[in-house]
Amino acid sequence: MKDREKNRILTKHISRRDLLKGSAFGLASLAIPIGKADASFWEAFFQKHFREMNRDEVKAVIARLEEDYYKKYNKRFNIKTTEALPGTLFGYGLDLSRCIGCRRCVYACVRENNQSRDPQIHWITVLRFKKGEKWVNDLEEAEKYYYPDEVPEEGYFYMPVQCQQCENPPCVKVCPTQATWKEPDGIVVVDYNWCIGCRYCMAACPYGARRFNWGEPRIAREEINTNVHYLGNRPRYKGVVEKCTFCIQRTRGNPGRYPACVEICPVGARKFGNLLDPKSEIRYIIENKRVFRLKEDLNTQPKFFYFFAT
């Protein structure tokens, strides 16, 4: 009940702010702004592309965003802009022989990455297949909506899908504004302040990995994760695209942390590491297990490897 109430307040707050930002009544943005709140509106409006900003500009933007988030969620955020570490190319392994389809990764991801709760956004989709049916390639027999009392279910197996961090990403190629790009450590990111919400990237992604904020994203205050990265899990806006970033806020660090989905997986089906490090676990898997990648015929070269450990 209390949550509901808070949510309501939050929502109200948001819509008032929106009005201020002029998006509620398009014409309002034509009015000449006076006062402080409006100054920040124009700063947001004219914010440059993330990669075009110099250090000082980035600092100013981060300060403004932290202030914005504070106003919106009444919490202090720490927005990192950690750059890619040299000599890293992140890769992911998913053991299909272990996955039990429990969806803990889905919800851990939602919490870690501040996905909107209402409307509901999930970056990870767990697909269920009937054993013996055709499955890979076009995935036309996949079942996304399964709700058993207990997993794993007899006669089925599971395949979680999320952004495959393609080395040759079609989503990046098609974006008309360069709002999405591949970082030096191989993570494909989105600048939520640059994306115009045309959704061309969603049409281009062969893995259904991209999510759009169809409505104003909503998260209860107490569930917000304030430890965020500019290119990753900071709260998003209505009308922009988002997706998995291999938990860029965690994995970019020395020492880095594992992505939330890797940590939570109860059966250890999820592996993560540096593809450029010959001694990493992910390299061991690629070199020793039966590995495949989804839709390899499209030549997207995912850095997400499915394998069978047993």
């Binding site: 098609v174 008309p176 640059w194």
Partner: peptide
């Protein structure tokens, strides 16, 4: 196209010079 955009006020991002037009890669 304008009514289809999630952030219509940012449409100028698609222009060259003032924005960051992804030419020639993006067909849009």
């Amino acid at each position: 196209i304008m009514v289809d955009l999630g952030r219509p006020e940012r449409v100028w991002h698609i222009l060259p010079v003032v924005g960051k037009m992804h030419f020639p890669a993006s067909l849009l």
